Structure formats: C-alpha cells, structure tokens
Computed example of a mutant assay.
Amino acid sequence: MPDVVQERAGVAVLMCDPDGPPVATVEDALDLIGAVFLGAEVVAVPAGRLDERFFSLGTRFAGEVMQKFVNYRLRLAVVGDISWHAAASPALQALVRESNSAGHVWFVPDLDALDARLRTVA
C-alpha cells in the first residue's frame, strides 16, 4: 500500500505505509514533507520506518527531522511502540514527553491514540 492521504478525526493525514522506504536521511524526511502538499496537515510515520539513529539522540537525526517539520509548519506523528527505545534513554523519554505536550511532533502508540490526539486539534 502506498502512502495515502486520509481524513482522520477531521484532519487530513498522510498515512505512511509501514512497508515503505525507511526514513534514514533528512532528505527522506523532506520527501515526506513534499508529499504533504497533496493536502495533508499531519504526517503519520510508523516508528518502524524510522532509522535507528532517530531514537539515538546523540546522532541529532531526530532533531534535524523534527525541525524540518516545524519549519514547514507541519505535524509529525510517530506511530508505534517505541518503549524499548525509550527504556534505554532518559533523554528520549524527555523528548517524547516534551513533544507530546507541544503541537508539532507527537509520539503515539497506535492509530486510535493518533485519532484521539487529532480530535483535540481539529
């Protein structure tokens, strides 16, 4: 299934295919941002599509990707269980907490949680 724009909780969301190409570079993230110009306000990326470096904050990859979404005024939702990454990194736990309290980047465990979050901003 390709990445598709769906309306979820009244918001246009680019739903990224779990089996799609990995997001391993900032350019990969920019490709997703470019696809949003089909009309989406949010990009929902399965956690499994993110390169392992995204969850290792010392690489700065997560910060670079997240900043691109902020710069383009788009929301990024990382969808899936990242608990094993977070368990190994207090810094990642703090980033998830901070991100989830702000408006541009969210970490949600599943699509039901994404829908609930979208309902708060729609």
Rank of each mutant, 00 (worst) to 15 (best):
A29L: 04
P22Q: 15
L50S: 02
H85I: 05
L50V: 06
F55C: 01
V121F: 14
D81S: 06
V78C: 10
L76H: 06
G80R: 00
V70N: 14
M15V: 15
G80I: 03
M66W: 08
E98V: 04
V105D: 11
F54W: 13
A9W: 01
G20C: 07
F55Q: 06
R8D: 12
R117G: 10
M66G: 07
L50Y: 12
D19T: 01
S99P: 05
A47H: 03
V70L: 12
A88K: 13
E7Y: 09
D51V: 01
G10K: 02
L76G: 01
C16H: 08
A86G: 08
W84E: 02
V5N: 05
E41A: 14
D31T: 03
R49A: 03
E64W: 03
E98Q: 13
R73Q: 12
V105A: 10
F55H: 00
G10Y: 14
D81Y: 03
L50E: 01
L32C: 04
V26R: 10
V65Q: 04
C16E: 02
A12F: 15
V96F: 02
L95M: 10
A62F: 07
V70I: 13
L92G: 11
L74R: 08
L14H: 13
R8I: 15
G63E: 15
A87P: 00
S83W: 11
F69E: 07
F54T: 01
E27K: 01
P2F: 14
I82P: 00
K68W: 03
F37H: 05
P22F: 09
N100E: 14
A86L: 13
W106T: 00
A40W: 08
T59P: 08
V45G: 03
V11Q: 03
A86Q: 11
D51P: 00
I33S: 04
G103I: 10
A62G: 04
D17P: 02
D31P: 00
I82C: 02
D81K: 00
V78E: 15
M1K: 00
E64L: 07
L50H: 13
P90F: 06
D112C: 12
V45C: 07
P2W: 10
A102M: 12
T120N: 07
V5C: 15
W106K: 06
V105S: 07
L38Y: 05
L74E: 01
Y72M: 05
P46G: 05
M15N: 07
C16Q: 10
P46E: 02
E7Q: 12
V78A: 15
N71P: 02
A77D: 03
R117V: 06
F61N: 11
V4A: 10
P2L: 15
G10H: 11
R60T: 15
F61A: 10
E41W: 13
P18K: 06
A29R: 00
